[in-house]
């Protein structure tokens, strides 16, 4: 439908120019198309100059200044974005550097800590071992002393018993120093074969 209308309007367009001109053809004088008319030239000059002045003042100036303002704004936005991006990348590099440094620090601290712990552990182990050995030694020595004391006690006890038993047997009191030394020599005689055995 629209194209039909277009066709119709085109037909009218083509035909009307013809219809419009039919009447004016009567004048038979020959026409020189290249003959310039001073009046028309002046009119052209006036119209063109006025149009130029009006358009420059009221059309081009606002239009182009708006465009230039927009271009300037765009340029500013772009340069700002670029500056921002540069700053951001610089910041990022800095951050990354710092991160790497921190990581290295952490590694170092960890390694140091591990080494310190290791050395401390071994030190303590040594100390504990030494202490343990020390304690064992002392205990052994004490035990030896106790044993010797007990043996001495036992021997005295045994001498007493033997003397009292013997005095019962022979009916008299054997409490002289000679008796005691006799028993003791006997007991030490007991010790000797025991030691050789």
């Amino acid at each position: 439908m629209r194209r039909t209308l277009v066709t119709l309007s085109l037909s009218v367009t083509s035909a009307t120019s013809l219809l419009a001109q039919e009447h004016a053809a009567a004048t038979g004088e020959s026409v020189n198309l290249l003959d310039p008319k001073a009046g028309l030239m002046f009119w052209t000059l006036i119209i063109f100059v006025v149009l130029l002045v009006v358009l420059s003042k009221f059309a081009y100036k606002p239009l182009l200044s708006a465009v230039e303002a927009r271009e300037a704004a765009l340029e500013k936005a772009i340069s700002e974005a670029k500056a921002d991006r540069d700053a951001a990348s610089k910041l990022l590099a800095e951050q990354q550097k710092q991160l790497a440094e921190t990581r290295a620090d952490v590694q170092k601290v960890l390694a140091d800590g591990r080494a310190a712990a290791e050395s401390m552990r071994s030190e303590m182990l040594e100390k504990v071992k030494a202490e343990g050995a020390d304690m064992l030694d002392r205990t052994r020595r004490e035990m030896q002393a106790e044993k010797e004391k007990a043996v001495a006690e036992l021997r005295r006890e045994a001498v007493d018993l033997a003397i009292s038993g013997a005095s019962k047997v022979i009916g008299r009191n054997l409490d002289s120093a000679t008796d005691r030394s006799l028993v003791e020599s006997f007991l030490s005689g007991l010790d000797a074969p025991k030691g050789t055995r």
Partner: peptide, 13 residues
């Protein structure tokens, strides 16, 4: 031309 361009310039602004 004048009307269209001035109108366009105003609308554009």
């Amino acid at each position: 031309v004048g009307a269209l361009l001035i109108f366009a310039a105003n609308a554009q602004g």
